[in-house]
Amino acid sequence: MFLYFYFYFKLYTNIHFQADKIHEQQEFEHLKSKHIGLGNSDTSRDEWIRNIHRDTYSSLAGHSPSVDYISTALNKPKVQVKADLIEKMIQPVEPRGKS
């Protein structure tokens, strides 16, 4: 019984709660740098879209039939299509607000 109260106290004290949150945040940042595209409830819409766009562009550039498909449509050399797709990954969407 005592032990139970002790843990209850420890876990739900405000200070510890804060510390856990920071720790959790750090853990998340660490995982995010390892696994790009990891999201949580705080991930903004823009960040999510940027991530999806980057995934899409890299997939298009990585699959040679899709490069063939785009290059035939655009009448551009395949190397250029591929480089353009990767270039778009730098900034898939215009940042909002300030330029």
Binding site: E87, M89, Q91, K98, S99
Partner: peptide, 21 residues
Amino acid sequence: ECDYGLYEGKSIRDENGDLNY
């Protein structure tokens, strides 16, 4: 290579809409 971290939060396009990085 290109370090896209440098361009986060600011546009890589100039006034004419051309890429500038």
